[in-house]
Write a protein that binds this DNA or RNA. Structure first.
Lengths: 249, 249
DNA sequence: TTCGGATGTAGAACGGTGTTCGTAGCCACT
DNA sequence: AGTGGCTACGAACACCGTTCTACATCCGAA
């Protein structure tokens, strides 16, 4: 009640010089940022892109916008909604082709590659996608396009619908795992990773052969990276082969 | 400095009755729990099992052990390590059969079912597994057994090694997604989930048919849950079918 | 033109988190 | 018997999401 901020400047009072705190307040007020939902979502995406999922906090978003966390809640219900909005927004960039029954498998491959690329470019989005069906205004078009490709494969309806789920989960999980591994190792260079792989291989080779025959036999391919996309492509191919065995064509 | 806890009771002072805070201190000291790493890990697992991942905090673990959070750090580097230890510990219960070339696919299925069950029974462990190769004392035996099953399928070495990775990722991601969905919805009953699915289906049916023909066609199977394991089994089967197409047999 | 109300802003606070610091006490070994 | 090292743990630090509340500003009605 007895705060330095005057609740109501009485007119009878003499026109005292404006105290400093008042001045800064007045100075800030005109430079009021609009602070729209769009701006908030964009700031969130920027943070996800540069600093990852764990760095995304309401305070951080607010700070990047030059305001306080409480102000965000006028435009966004809570953090979960913010994440969902950011998720949907990034899907603008996913493209999908006209389904071609002759090439549907390759088309699925290409679409998943594109999705993976986008998720990779915003580390943390993959984490946000897990457990959520991204049915925002943009996401729903992606899902429609994806389902179209699967339907072009002449699969039973249930197989097409569920396969969409499984494949999407695989892509997201792949990026997420990569993201985690990266953040654990902390900016490890390609050389570090190879050194670690070599160390691991050495450990496996030192295991008693009669107890670990299979690991010894597979030690080499286990730590063969296959390039940045090799393993991803392998898993995707595995599922597509499985899908092909369901095709009625 | 001027705390109520006496640093050195001067002998000249009269034998005043022991103040309550002193009493509790004295009473606790003799009943000093050993507080081993094992006990901490066990407490953590107990919490995961009963209250889920979100309930697992250092303070909670400490409270269950009748101590303070700081005490845990003498036995465990940080929360991440605690989770990793819990992860390896839980693998004691994963069993794997002697590889049988005639039944290897079914054996893989069973092993993955078992792994999933265990991960499900300790929500949060799945999250800890992502991005990590759980090569603890127990985990390494599991990996060996798994590789043995895959090798029984007469697959190229690279296929066997990478497939192990992909399948394991799928199982873990499946549980993790389930876990997140559960924690987002917050204790939703089976009825709630079905109501939500019905609502979603209604929304999809309300979409313009010329713009969303595929989603409309697949609306029913998309929201068919297939029971608690249906979709998991489907995805597992998809990958095994893909693997079968790699088998030289 | 003036006055209210609606709306958006934001500081402070609540109850939580993981982790660190410093101190106190116990144990075992010289 | 003394002492050094290990462990326990309260307090504190820096965060988190969210809410409360006071406060400016703007807009429309009188």
């Amino acid at each position: 009640m007895a705060e330095p901020v005057a609740p109501n400047p009485p007119e009878s009072a003499p026109p005292a010089p404006v105290p400093p705190w008042e001045r800064t307040r007045k100075a800030k007020a005109p430079a009021r940022t609009p602070l729209s939902q769009e701006a908030i979502v964009e700031a969130a995406l920027r943070i996800l892109e540069t600093d990852g999922y764990d760095a995304l906090s309401m305070r951080r978003v607010a700070a990047d916008l030059g305001t306080g966390a409480a102000s965000l809640y006028a435009h966004v219900a809570n953090k979960d909604e913010l994440v969902k909005l950011a998720l949907d927004r990034v899907f603008v960039d996913v493209s999908f082709p006209e389904p071609d029954p002759e090439r549907w498998m390759e088309q699925v491959r290409e679409m998943m590659r594109g999705t993976r690329k986008i998720l990779q470019s915003h580390p943390g989005l993959a984490r946000a996608m897990l457990g959520r069906v991204p049915m925002g205004p943009n996401g729903i078009h992606i899902i429609e396009g994806f389902m179209g490709l699967l339907r072009a494969g002449d699969l039973p309806d249930r197989v097409a619908a569920w396969a969409g789920d499984v494949i999407a989960l695989y892509v997201v999980a792949n990026v997420f795992e990569e993201d985690i591994r990266f953040s654990i190792h902390g900016e490890a260079s390609q050389e570090d990773v190879e050194a670690w792989a070599g160390e691991m291989k050495g450990y496996i080779r030192s295991l008693p052969p009669e107890q670990f025959p299979n690991m010894l036999a597979l030690a080499d391919p286990m730590f063969e990276t296959g390039g940045p996309d090799g393993r991803f492509e392998f898993g995707l191919d595995l599922m597509l082969r499985g899908l092909a065995s369901h095709s009625r064509r």
